[in-house]
Simulated scan of single mutants.
Amino acid sequence: MPGLSETLSRLAAARANATQMPIPDSDRLADIASFGSDPGNLRARHYIPAGFKAVAPLVVVLHGCTQNAAGYDHGSGWSALADRHGFALLYPEQRPANNPNRCFNWFAADDITRDQGEALSIRQMIAHMISDYHIDPTRVFVNGLSAGGAMTMVMLATYPELFAGGAVIAGLPYGTATSVGAALQRMRGSGLPDAPALAELVRDAAPTPLRWPRLSVWHGTSDQTVAPDNMEAIIAQWAALQGLSVEAAQHDRVDQQARRRWIGPRGTVQIEAYSIAGLGHGTPIDPVGDGACGTAMPFMLPAEICSTRHIAGSWGIADTARAKAGPRRAAPPPPPRATARPVAQGGVAKVISDALRAAGLMR
């Protein structure tokens, strides 16, 4: 278990970084005025590309802490990819009233249970999109970063029958934390259950579907916010549900990055996992060259591999090649990182509660 001083230091650094994170002015998304009872009190945003045709796929995108929908779309390049391939996008957005750091509440029991809270709000948004835009109900996908990645696992576990596939970037397995203290420990990779227990958490979350959604998992090897052990736990959780051996992975490299794949009994890839060498906490993007994907900003990290494009390709709704080959130009300098401020005086209890709220782990 990490010591109190270490935990407070990390939370103070996260707080300093979060307060200085810019949110881009560019906004290609539109609001959905009404979509249901919205028990999770979430904002609903969406993007419909020009020339959109009925019976197209839908991609649900869940932003990370300190982000909003427009910022994540700008950084990840999802709407640019939708323009090219004609699928619709749904962006649930957290409200500061629910979580002061805009994190989805992946550790709150009332928000991660089927037909309750934030999980139900997102389910209602999807139903609205399917009805109003005649989405193909067999091609609904979900992905997210960090707390959005953890919430992606919530949606896959609580509504597995709804999704054809999901993708988790720097996220956590479903159901392993239902308190602030447990959330902190799981983020550090401590106290994660074994594979059978992880699978049981999902089996208890919803009726067993006819088939489990395909899963793509991405994690930086140098992530100091969500330990890479969580990636292995996600793989173990999803593999155990399907009777797949974690040791039976096929290994290769894509854009110079290590990839593992697990093949199901029908010869389809049920799980894939990318370990991005040297990457910290964020979404891997490739913002250079004529076929650029994404925009560098906090938690949107240049890695010479486009997770957005490869994820969509794994679902069969986009190609994985660059839009146009061209010379690679120098990557833009990384965004400045804020320096952690000294922990304020005022008592240990106040320091801890302030830090937890800043990190998005306390309402």
Rank of each mutant, 00 (worst) to 15 (best):
T19I: 15
G264T: 12
Q20H: 13
A292H: 14
M1Y: 10
F104K: 01
A108Q: 09
A13R: 13
H219P: 05
E272L: 13
L81A: 15
A321E: 15
T320S: 15
A236M: 02
S216T: 15
K350D: 15
L198G: 02
L81N: 07
A182R: 12
T66N: 13
L301C: 07
Q345G: 09
Q67Y: 03
E247M: 12
G40R: 00
I234W: 02
D286P: 11
Q237R: 03
M155I: 06
G294P: 08
H219E: 05
W106N: 01
S34T: 14
R363F: 09
H281T: 02
T176D: 04
G264N: 11
G181Q: 14
S9V: 10
P22F: 08
F141Y: 13
A344F: 11
A312M: 13
A338N: 07
G346W: 06
L162Y: 01
A119H: 02
T320C: 14
V343R: 11
G181D: 15
E304A: 14
M125F: 06
A338S: 14
L356T: 10
S307D: 08
M362G: 04
V61R: 00
C103A: 13
F107R: 00
L90G: 04
A349G: 07
Q242D: 05
A206K: 06
M1N: 12
H46Y: 14
A82R: 02
A325D: 15
L201D: 06
P302L: 03
L361Q: 01
G165N: 05
G316V: 09
A240D: 05
N143Q: 12
P193W: 00
G316Y: 11
A199G: 07
V226I: 14
G36R: 01
A240N: 08
A109M: 10
S314K: 04
W315D: 04
A88D: 05
I169D: 05
G220M: 00
I235F: 02
R357Q: 13
V180W: 05
M297H: 06
Q94I: 00
L11F: 09
